[in-house]
Design a protein around this nucleic acid. Structure first.
Lengths: 346, 346
DNA sequence: CTGAAAGCGCTTACAG
DNA sequence: CTGAAAGCGCTTACAG
């Protein structure tokens, strides 16, 4: 093996074939290669064959970076969420991914851990990465974070929580879900219902608060303010909130918890207090909870159509990418009260 | 407002400032703008100021796509996992993300749903996107999927499951974890231990099988083959496996489940059969299970250091990106048997 | 210290 | 149908 051969080998091993290599090998221009491989124009069959053979032989993979720069668009969609350890978001992402993979988009994942600064940072990064679109669940102070994206005309849809921005939205009927859960508890003769809610700085918490309130009102009852506690959407948040509720001189006979993590925390607090579900206290959770049926007693929940939320979100984004002028969409998907064993039976 | 002004406005609204706009506004060359904004070379203070002012005024954001193409590297890392609805992976991703955000990388997420074809597709896409590195948990038939990536010299580290490839690896002590759990059950006088394992086509399942086997052997006992069932790493898999075990003429007195989803399924099956934990049957789960302490009885588990796995994986990748020549790393992080209430007490 | 110019790997009018 | 050439927005030797 000569010196030259060796260096060629080395080059072949560490370097990647480009469109020029394919063109040279096939004896055509790069334009023709591009036409053959990217589908577009008509190319004579024999040339096309030569190109395909050359591409295969060189294991040619088009460099997406170059294509992106040239056509000024990418095949990646940014997904911005507050927390990946929350099963609501993972269930949504799963559905989003299925639709997006179908449409040849990849997901760039941005997690901001309920931190406004990180949310801004992620949004700025995605702007720089020139994502084809953004799916986001905004935090409480998200106002400024998405401005640059909006200015740049990047298609966006907000998911689950409404954004104060002119973007498409898909969420669930939080008002109705909270209403249904509360009415169910009221019908079971509960009057002191502890309500563990997220911070009322995001739309989901506000809507749920209103739903609970309305259910009381419709039953000619009133909410007891000390029984609603706003706490972070976390396990610790739910735990602390439940502790507080259970320590009340007149403790609640039922607890309604705002999301899956809070519910987990509340359950832990209840178990620590040696209360028995549903005999001593009823529990309803609002959210996606894969473990609801594995609990004993199984947990009554307001289920959210996570997969549907994800699918619709992805579809709205795809539609918006295709047509930036279409009117703003606003979708609310129905929640469903699923009665299991954690509230007992009438 | 004149025609021209209007069209300028429109242009300003829909178009994004480039480095040329900044250069023009600041009265310097694009090279100088690049130097100022990308940190590099020395630039006279007054020029630098002018550049920064112009950039701010135009709300200039460098186009990462162009930079990427030019410098032949991206700021994104591909993360390839079988399933996002598995809390092990989300816990790992969270930690990965924290390290990677720190280092200014974003995560491109690839989910393959335990499907070899999708795994290949994702790997090919990430190759085309020119990711700076790949973190992946390979499936059973992953052999070919990562070849192109490897050929292209893309840094890779396999996470949790060993790959048959020359790449860095970080996982947990599955052998020891399964051993500890089994020994614990044996010490509690269990002899018929149902073991719900994943398919022995991936290293985690194989290692756990060996651990269980060794614990029996060290106690001068033998595993009962009918009591080990290989099933997918899903809720349904665990449910079906537990059903099968509980239907045995001589049913097991304990169940060891291989991951969080299988454990959930097994619990559901146990509840359906009206058996009481731990009185009638003991249960141990191996995996990250955020809900373990919210269960009643709380669940004895072999906990995995997910966060540490994620951090190490990200760090190994960063190190590999920096130095492609360093020797292959092989890290196994310790599991821990956490005894709670689901096996009763001695 | 600064600028003119080349070039990353594609796609796509524009000629022919 | 096909190719030569321009250009996407950057960075970086190379001169000066």
């Amino acid at each position: 093996v000569s010196e030259t051969d060796r260096s060629d080998e080395k080059k072949a091993a560490s370097t990647v074939a480009t469109i020029r290599d394919v063109a040279a090998q096939a004896g055509v221009s790069t334009a023709t290669v591009s036409r053959v491989l990217s589908g577009g124009g008509n190319v004579r069959a024999d040339l096309a064959d030569r190109v395909r053979q050359a591409a295969a032989a060189l294991r040619y993979q088009p460099n997406r970076l170059a294509r992106n720069l040239r056509v000024r668009e990418t095949q990646v969609v940014g997904v911005i969420i507050p927390n990946i350890e929350n099963s609501f978001f993972t269930a949504v992402i799963r559905a989003v991914d299925e639709v997006l993979q179908q449409a040849s988009y990849s997901i760039l994942l941005g997690i901001y851990y309920d931190c406004p600064a990180r949310e801004r940072a992620v949004a700025a990064t995605f702007r720089a990465e020139a994502t084809a679109g953004i799916l986001f669940t905004p935090g409480p102070e998200s106002a400024g974070a998405y401005e640059a994206l909006l200015d740049a005309g990047v298609p966006m849809v907000s998911v689950s929580r409404r954004a104060e921005l002119p973007v498409d939205f898909v969420g669930v009927t939080n008002y109705q879900g909270a209403y249904d859960a509360t009415r169910h508890l009221i019908q079971l003769r509960h009057r002191r219902i502890g309500f563990i809610n997220g911070p009322c700085t995001v739309s989901t918490a506000v809507d749920r608060h209103r739903g609970v309130e309305a259910a009381f009102r419709d039953a000619s009852l009133a909410m007891t303010p000390e029984l609603e506690v706003e706490t972070p959407w976390t396990h610790a948040g739910g735990y602390l909130a439940a502790k507080k509720l259970l320590a009340l001189s007149e403790r609640p006979t039922a607890i309604l918890a705002g999301n899956n993590l809070q519910t987990l925390g509340a359950l832990e607090a209840i178990h620590e207090s040696k209360l028995e579900i549903p005999r001593d206290i009823a529990v309803v959770g609002i959210d996606e909870m894969p473990w609801a049926t594995s609990l004993r007693p199984s947990l009554t929940t307001v289920t959210l159509p996570c997969a549907e939320v994800g699918r619709v979100a992805a579809q709205l984004l795809l539609d918006r990418i295709k047509d930036s002028e279409r009117t703003l969409q606003n979708v609310e998907l129905p929640t469903k009260l699923v009665i299991r064993a954690s509230c007992g039976w009438e």
